[in-house]
Design a binder for these strands. Structure first.
Lengths: 366, 366
DNA sequence: GTGTCGCAAGATAGCGCTAACATTGTTTGA
DNA sequence: TCAAACAATGTTAGCGCTATCTTGCGACAC
């Protein structure tokens, strides 16, 4: 009378809730409660379970969790060539949160968006529940509208213009640009060139506004010739810096709307035989990898990209799970703190500018 | 006599295999077989099922799949500050494969590794099944040994020295450097400066070897003063380029072991009033984002980082699933093709070198 | 004393999929 | 000719966890 126990399915790896429960002398359910830190567990019980978890080296199985909890969640990260550095930092933040919340990240590159409608269809095909929108896509009105129509929760990252149907994670671009400009003014600069960012990104206008306000408050004239239009690329930065430095009364400082363009300004300065920061101060924006790669390191504004990505992912995951309130969506608009990083590329105004071609080189160990 | 159907659990999203099966008039198992493209399904049946899948817009649930299949797999990506651009590209490749294979990526930064043993303990705590090692960690002997001792499958990416207990994805660094050097020679250059990479990365020596071989085969002398030691950073590139350009008989071309250092060489050349490529050709290695950011764009070697990451992830996932052969591990050493990208920074040797400070600027649309 | 509320913990039944086995129908081989 | 081998599908029973319901038990008022 042998009862055939039909299947001890093969590849079992590591202890399960059942093992922990046995070891702690409680039911699996209680272990589950402890894992999810539910309030209705007595401290004593909780301790027993925790000890058992520790002893067995138990780690919950995320697949089982999301299956049983019915809480699966797929978030798409749509990106249209932001710089690699930006994307990488963004991913780090997003991934960290994603693995913690058991959400699956779908990274989708949409360079030349086929058409918002088509894109939305594709996302639906992937069963995407929510969408992360880093710049420049966060400002794509057509895309935003299409996503809204599809009823997908979304988060705009670092946009200058948060819409009322999307979550948004931003810094105060205006205030940041204001702070940087003020910093340059404090250093004694009066003619400060400004390289604007791309027109199609709403943050660009805010950064410019901060620059303008700082000048106005300091009683400095806003010279038209000191304001040049870039597009966030290094190449545009080269051209802008060239035109600024070609001015008869050239600026003593250049504030570029991002680090790539600031790096270009440094390169142009060097080509002109100007030392940075002695003959020309340069400031950037973003604190991208570029800012500490080049020499001298850039004074810049730190934008907490990873943190924005992290919080955005968390907010979306939350939104997907509590899909309770679709009509009255209480979207969150979170504003994070920026930071003014004073590094080597900006210094006090020298009494008398002059050319010099031999910069101090950073020590490079043989 | 009401039979209480106790629980139609709440949040059910989208069709399941059962729905597809009903729609196609087959059993769920057959649907599963079609999804996994098993060979033992009649074409006719397969077609019916495919049609049903299409009609219902069915998408398999990865959580359920990996739970039922017992095939869960966690792969850690250990990184110690490779450049952000590198990491970003690496992640793209790795993520693509990970989501396709239902493996969970754990991204772990280990800047100053606490100690290999401790790190391994931490990985074990995360239930990591395998490890991806991009440079420079792929060359950390202590780490490799510790991982081997822990019995973790691993993959070295872009190493110069593949060990016999790890999978490895590489390009032929020696051949690539040879090709680039030969390219410069073909352009007429005879005095070619070489900026070496960091000593602790095994690929550095291979790149140098390729340079040396090309010179030798062309019958050119290997001048000691043309060979300078960098460490893959932009700053080291500045110093190296300075020393090369300070030589009495300066080189007409500089081949740097990576793009960051090549970019630095371009910057130094410009500071010296040299036009690139008219007065000095510059070549890099990696085809990193930097290479097309700066102006002029760098002639460089394309290293298929994303593809390496993709294949490495696939190999590891495979290895984890068929954990059949632990003793006789048939590790795979895959060599991918590189590509010589001829861009603007390297050109034919000018008959008579001379200084010129006004480079053509890339058109920056205002 | 006896009901009933409150609360911690247990029991049960799936989440969506697939491994392992069972069942057909169809072919072979001796 | 009939058993054995195969090939295409169906059936059953979990994978590891948690939502939902149920139970046990002390507290508290009547």
């Amino acid at each position: 009378m042998t009862i055939r126990t039909r299947k001890p399915r093969s590849g079992t790896r590591g202890p399960t809730v059942a093992d922990v429960a046995r070891h702690a002398g409680v039911s699996p359910m209680t272990v589950s409660r402890v894992i999810n830190s539910e309030p209705t567990v007595l401290p004593a019980t909780c301790e027993k379970v925790t000890a058992a978890i520790e002893a067995l080296g138990y780690v919950p199985n995320p697949a089982a969790r999301s299956l049983a909890g019915g809480r699966q969640c797929r978030i798409a990260l749509l990106h249209a060539n932001p710089s690699a550095a930006y994307l990488s930092e963004f991913l780090m933040g997003s991934l960290a949160q994603a693995s913690q919340f058991d959400v699956q990240l779908i990274v989708e590159h949409c360079d030349i968006a086929p058409s918002p409608a088509e894109l939305v269809r594709k996302l639906a095909g992937h069963r995407v529940d929510a969408v992360l929108l880093p710049p420049p896509l966060c400002d794509d009105a057509a895309l935003l509208a299409a996503l809204q129509k599809a009823g997908l929760p979304m988060a705009q990252i670092a946009t200058g213009q948060a819409v009322d149907f999307a979550h948004a994670l931003t810094i105060d671009d205006e205030a940041a640009a204001y702070a940087m400009t003020q910093h340059l003014i404090t250093l004694g600069h009066q003619r400060i060139g400004f390289v604007q960012g791309a027109c199609d990104q709403t943050a660009s206008a805010l950064r410019r506004a901060g620059y303008v306000r700082a000048l106005a408050e300091a009683g400095l004239a806003l010279a038209d010739d000191l304001l040049v239009q870039g597009d966030f690329t290094y190449r545009s930065g080269l051209a802008c810096a060239e035109s600024l430095l070609a001015l008869p009364d050239r600026p003593t400082a250049i504030f570029a709307s991002n680090d790539d363009m600031a790096a270009a300004a440094v390169a142009v300065a060097h080509r002109h035989g100007l030392d940075v920061p002695r003959d020309l101060s340069v400031a950037g924006f973003d604190n991208s990898a570029m800012s500490t790669t080049i020499w001298p390191e850039l004074t810049t504004i730190d934008q907490p990209v990873a943190e924005m990505a992290r919080q955005a992912t968390a907010i979306l995951a939350e939104a997907v799970r509590n899909r309770t309130n679709l009509p009255d969506k209480p979207v969150q608009h979170v504003r994070l703190a920026f930071q003014l990083l004073c590094r080597a590329s900006a210094g006090p105004l020298a009494s008398k500018p002059g050319g010099n071609v031999s910069p101090r080189l950073g020590g490079a160990e043989v």
